[in-house]
């Protein structure tokens, strides 16, 4: 029975299934009515109207990787932040100062990243 704390997540799980079924069903419905005449030209990868040169999978610029790393750092921070945000009022100044220090360190990290020019795209 979907009740209580656990029950709420059962609802969410059921909705995930419902969403999946919805897409699958519509795609199946579409399959019934749509034409299907694959040709070599249609199945070619699109590259502005000419035959593609090389393959589409290539090692890309590591720049994205650094942004991802930065993101992880700050997202973890956010995870810490939310529980703290609810209770810091009761914990008082000490908790607040701790968070100031924590955010200060992160801000320093961000500043360092800026100084190191890793946020420049080129």
């Amino acid at each position: 029975m979907p009740e209580g704390y656990f029950g709420q997540y059962v609802t969410i799980g059921i909705f995930a299934i419902v969403g999946t079924v919805l897409v699958a069903a519509t795609l199946q419905l579409s399959r019934l009515v749509r034409p299907n005449h694959p040709t070599t030209a249609k199945l070619t990868t699109y590259e502005s109207g000419i035959d593609p040169i090389g393959h589409g999978w290539s090692q890309s610029n590591v720049r994205y990787y650094i942004f991802a790393l930065l993101f992880v750092v700050f997202d973890v921070e956010a995870v810490f932040l939310f529980p703290w945000a609810i209770v810091f009022e009761e914990l008082g100044t000490a908790a607040f100062v701790e968070m100031v220090i924590f955010i200060g360190i992160l801000a320093l990290a961000l500043l360092y990243a800026v100084k190191k020019r890793v946020l420049e795209w080129l």
Binding site: T26, S30, R34, K42, L43, T44
Partner: peptide, 13 residues
């Protein structure tokens, strides 16, 4: 309209 459109998955995908 989109329901009636052909579904194409490229060969190399």
């Amino acid at each position: 309209k989109f329901l009636y459109k052909e579904d194409i998955i490229p060969e190399r995908a």
